[in-house]
Nucleic acid binder design. Structure first.
Lengths: 396, 396
DNA sequence: CCTCCTTTGTCCTGAGAGTGGAAAAAGTAG
DNA sequence: CTACTTTTTCCACTCTCAGGACAAAGGAGG
């Protein structure tokens, strides 16, 4: 099948496409209820969308008491590619136009191998998904990278953990390779978009999405739109000082949040505890694997290991203190916690909640849910698909 | 003269009114250059605005090489009232439609006397300004109060330093009294609006405006619009923890920024230093007045008093640490420092800059100006006028 | 003062967007 | 089979708006 290239011709069409994306197949009459257009106008715009083949007829809807309406839906052959490049692994997924995941693969990979090597792997993963018959090609792709991005151009800028990527024209290069439009963003922003589209943040206009993985970042959503800051580095909370004169951090300062709590810090603390024989559970796991990660800490904690629980609690307290400050400043309607450490679960969440509810004023915390992300590892790829669909479903 | 009641009928008219507000009198041809409307369309909209008397003809413009264009300007009889209620004083000013201050008075007043007493004084100040012939009435008023506001309704919510105002219908009450439209906002947000309209932030889309007065607050501007948060308490940074296990704060926590540095904290520290004879300058001033304020500290510092300088530096360091965190999080294009303590000047600014440039990552600070506000005590009233004019110059 | 050129303002026509009524089409309920 | 509802199409009419033609007003040079 040839790929779709059409774009909505005006704001009305864009609106309709997004309604179909977010609400699934829909009858013309139901669409009419949602858009405040005259029947004739709506019919004209829908007909034009049908001509572009972006949407297709989809049988008859159930009767609402009279003549049955004709259903329409987004073209079921449309395919988006969602790519979430983490520090130590890559997720690639294929979605339909309604952003439902049709196929998803994850592979370990060190982002420091550089853009060329990583993209080779991404493309082979995409090819593998295509080979299963899920897609014959892609109509658009969203890419998340673990560092700041100059958003309009889709180019990483001064990314601390992936220095080889600085200035690499990710958007252009991948657009060439894939032969479709591409948008690039920070992985944390994509997680926020994902949770907004299909997760816990569906109904909230202003929220924060804290991702605790190898590093720590925070997606900021203002009025339903991701806020990226002046240079694309907004939400970079890993290097906020959490402990005065604390541990040295890779950034050159001391006491950064990330130095005290993150996937990497947790692994180091756990290894230290194992070596010093402060924790039988962790020592046993260290013995078995020769290395420890956040997953091991989670397992030890689940088994009731006091040291592991302490590590989680203390990290949660640090993180919670920082978040408390952000809550005072930003007054969000929701805080989502996500990323690799969600395995640490409610011990972590409880510690964060305690600090935030204690450290911020009641007006800001009074009605503030602090919850774990709902989508887990799929948040990033769904967010990536959402990013490119937002771009394509907007007036040209 | 009868008051204007007309509002722009559509977005084009609103756009034109704002151009005239921000750019002053303008020729029709120049307006045409800025708005991307056909000449005919522009002529129609301008004629309609002339009919409403919101704008008036204003002679002929200089020739640009051919026929001279007709100038138009906002009706010179339009008057806005800007009110900035601080913790310890009230500013009231009258502006024309271009938001130029025509008259401005300031009076000490304790906000804790409650809304009824304060509004009595505000109304008498407004009457005094009117009596000078500057205005025959007001076409709109903006009010700033030192606490969070439920913005759509214009009602303070849970304001810590003005408990008697909780739930008082400020907007409605003042609209009744003044007989014109009223908008209410947090005083810090109005300072940000003021600096954006006529001060240092004219060309920046995303910036922070930190106001250090009796308390500490922060105006947040995202994409040119003030961000107020879910419950109107965004920017309430005075109660972010700056010192672990620090001084007790009125809010019940310990180590809040406001407890360690603010007009109130500075006065207390200075008094203590004077009583303990650690500072001859401060002691002398304490002797003379029986009380000390930030102004005295500024004067002592200017005279080279080491203790005063230390107080300022330490406060600046604390504030700078908090701002460093906010800069990492928000990645603004500018940070403005304002409020009563601007008298402390460059000693304070230098301390803040040091902490921010040291404590945030280079990508966020690389091109980040940190400057004092340009408007001083007029920022609030200009912001108030801007607030109501934004409201009135938008489609009904 | 006159001519030529530029800019500004006005008028007019035609294309397109959009509304809302009428009627046909397709159901349901009894 | 009838009465009523909902959906869809068709059509006439209004409104907006762009852009061209032209008139008005001014500058520059002779």
């Amino acid at each position: 099948m040839r790929r779709m290239t059409a774009r909505p011709a005006n704001a009305h069409q864009a609106r309709l496409l997004r309604l179909l994306r977010d609400g699934g197949p829909n009858s013309r009459a139901q669409l009419g209820d949602q858009v405040d257009l005259s029947r004739s106008k709506l019919a004209v715009e829908v007909d034009r969308l049908l001509e572009t083949e972006l949407v297709v007829a989809d049988g008859l809807a159930a009767s609402r008491g009279g003549r049955r309406s004709h259903n329409i839906r987004l073209n079921p052959h449309l395919r988006f590619l969602g790519v979430d490049i983490g520090a130590t692994s890559v997720d690639v997924a294929v979605t339909n136009a309604e952003l439902e995941i049709l196929g998803h693969i994850n592979q370990p990979m060190d982002v420091r191998e550089g853009p060329v090597a990583v993209f080779e792997q991404v493309l082979s993963m995409a090819a593998k998904l295509r080979a299963t018959g899920l897609a014959e090609g892609f109509d658009g792709a969203g890419i998340g990278v673990p560092g700041p991005v100059r958003f309009p151009e889709g180019i990483p800028v001064a990314p601390p953990i992936m220095p080889g990527w600085d200035g690499f024209p990710v958007r252009e290069a991948l657009s060439q390779e894939l032969g479709c439009p591409v948008m690039v963003d920070n992985d944390v922003n994509l997680m926020a978009l994902g949770e907004q589209h299909a997760g816990v943040a569906r109904t909230v206009a202003d929220f924060l999405c804290v991702k605790i993985g190898t590093g720590i970042g925070c997606g900021i959503v203002v009025g339903g739109e991701v806020y990226r800051g002046t240079t694309g580095s907004a939400g970079d909370i890993g290097h906020i000082q959490a402990v005065p004169d604390g541990r040295p951090c890779a950034c050159g300062n001391r006491g950064c949040l990330e130095a005290h709590f993150s996937g990497a810090a947790l692994a180091r603390d756990a290894t230290e505890a194992a070596e010093q024989q402060r924790s039988p559970e962790l020592a046993a796991r260290f013995e078995a694997n020769g290395t420890l990660s956040a997953v091991d800490v989670a397992a030890a904690a689940a088994a009731g290991d006091a040291t592991a629980l302490d590590l989680i609690r203390e990290g949660g307290n640090r993180t919670g203190q920082v978040i408390a400050g952000l809550v005072s400043f930003f007054n969000p309607g929701l805080v989502v916690i996500g990323g690799g450490v969600t395995g640490l679960g409610h011990t972590l969440l409880a510690a964060i909640r305690t600090q935030v509810y204690r450290g911020s004023l009641p007006l800001a915390t009074g009605n503030l849910p602090i919850v774990l992300g709902e989508l887990g590892p799929t948040a990033g790829v769904i967010g990536a698909a959402r990013l490119i669909s937002d771009h394509l479903f907007s007036p040209a």
